[in-house]
Amino acid sequence: MFYLSIFFQYAAQYLKTRMTYRGDLVVEIFSDLLFQAVNLIFILVVFGHTALLAGWSREEIIFIYGFFLVPYAIFSAFFNIWDFNDRYIVKGEMDRVLTRPIHSLFQIIIERMELESLFGVITGLAIMFYAGSQLGLELSWYDPFVFILMVIGGAFIYAGIFICLASISFWSDSKTDIMPMMYNIGNYGRYPVDIYNNVIRFVLTWILPFAFVGVYPAAFFLGRTEWYTYAFLTPVMGVVFLSIAYFLWNAGVKRYRGAGN
């Protein structure tokens, strides 16, 4: 597979470059860890006042957070397109991308990867195992496979949403604050959707389906059978959103007008 081999070529080059600035790498991983710790403390503080949140216990919420970290880590490692408008449209870097014989979206993914974000997978797994053992969860033989499927689905949803947003730049290159806003909305998916009102729940399920990156798939592992339908929709939603994003992107590239000097 040509694309796979190119991916490894770029990844190898990336690691080589990163290793020359090892200090930066450590600082970055450390600040990620700190950020995740702050999020955990926030959950603990909220549960300092109540034992249950809409029927979910503290350990369950921590488990959901742990799960969320895994697809999010994969998304952050490979889909750094939050600055696509500035970097590729306004500065015209897209010109260069379009003169190379690889799909333009794939090129941007491999050019902008930040593999150190994958460290979040380990943190997420650790948190899940901790919360899982507190809850006395059993691990079945099929759980790892379902987990991988759910993680891929979740990462696809994140990727799909952000690729759609980046594609908008092909139609309008005016500056918007939509990207940082979307990162905030993404965080809502880590909490059980039944704590929100119906409108927000609907949006988080069908419009900006971040609930599929956290609470829904995690509900499967928590044995919350009432959410199983949603849990198993996760990979489907992932494929649907990534496909929409892919078509939108291709349509956008046809409209690319370059940076007019």
């Binding site: 897209m94 010109d95 379009l98 003169t99 014989p101 690889i102 046809k254 409209r255 690319y256 370059g258």
Partner: peptide
């Protein structure tokens, strides 16, 4: 070179349509 789509008219370069067959063409 296939970077921009023409508004109108025909382009054939190296026997290909640069924008439509971009990835093959740019080789």
């Amino acid at each position: 070179t296939g970077i921009l789509t023409p508004t109108a008219g025909e382009v054939r370069v190296n026997g290909m349509d640069p924008h439509r067959e971009r990835e093959k063409f740019v080789r």
